[in-house]
Design a protein around this nucleic acid. Structure first.
Length: 220
DNA sequence: GACCAGGCACATC
DNA sequence: GATGTGCATGGT
């Protein structure tokens, strides 16, 4: 009688939670800041995103309405430290355009939209892929969705909970089919996986040292 | 100086 | 549909 996926996922959550505690994610002061961070962190270390967001704050530009009025070139210069800055400036501007023109610049208006509709809408914006959309939905709008990032794939595939070539939707489904659809749980779980990766995957390539199955060793 | 980081879109086959 | 490539800074 082997342990079910559900039990495994719940056990891992408990281990991570006991080891790292409540993460208080997303690290942002407002829902709109979550949107900005979600776009800027695409394939980028968070420390670089922090610099870019600090620039936006310093310039008093961290609002949809203010960014809406700025040319892409100005946004690009402010977010330069986050890398891919020309591309991200365009993406950010497109997202901001959507928030302003469809929701009067209000994140709460945007978040009011029904989950599936909102997700499809976000995905239709150039530069917003599945992970970015889900991060916005979960961490800015408190919708109960699991964010399946590359850390999730690395850690869970390496420890045999998912196959080698599992795609985003399948990974997300593993969590969402086996856990209660609770915003707080999905929030913490993803944040805890990132914390695990930051603590144990940094120095070793391809996450060789991600000790998911060895967690008790680190917890004890 | 290489390698990597909380992706995504697009070209090409 | 799958595979490859550009995008770019800053930390290790």
């Amino acid at each position: 009688m082997s342990t079910s996926k559900k039990e495994q996922l719940e056990n891992i959550y408990q281990l991570l939670y006991r080891r790292f505690g409540k993460r208080n994610w997303w690290p942002a002061d407002s829902p709109f800041e979550v949107v900005v961070g979600a776009i800027l962190t695409q394939n980028t270390a968070w420390t670089n995103v922090e610099k870019a967001i600090a620039n936006l704050k310093r310039a008093d530009m961290l609002s949809a309405l203010k960014l809406y009025r700025q040319p892409v070139s100005v946004i690009a210069e402010l977010i330069r430290p986050s890398g891919f800055y020309n591309q991200k400036a365009k993406r950010l501007k497109l997202m901001v355009k959507h928030i302003v023109e469809s929701y009067k610049g209000s994140m709460s208006n945007l978040c009011n939209k029904e989950t599936t509709e909102l997700r499809n809408e976000l995905l239709s914006i150039n530069g917003i892929g599945k992970e970015t959309a889900d991060s916005i939905m979960l961490y800015a709008c408190n919708k109960p969705l699991f964010v399946a990032d590359s850390y999730t794939y690395r850690v869970f595939s390496r420890h045999g909970l998912i196959e080698k070539e599992t795609g985003y939707d399948e990974i997300q489904a593993l969590f969402m089919d086996n856990l209660d659809h609770d915003t707080n749980t999905f929030n913490e779980y993803h944040a805890l996986i990132v914390e695990l990766a930051k603590n144990f995957c940094r120095t070793k390539p391809l996450c060789d040292a991600c000790p998911l199955s060895d967690l008790p060793r680190y917890i004890d």
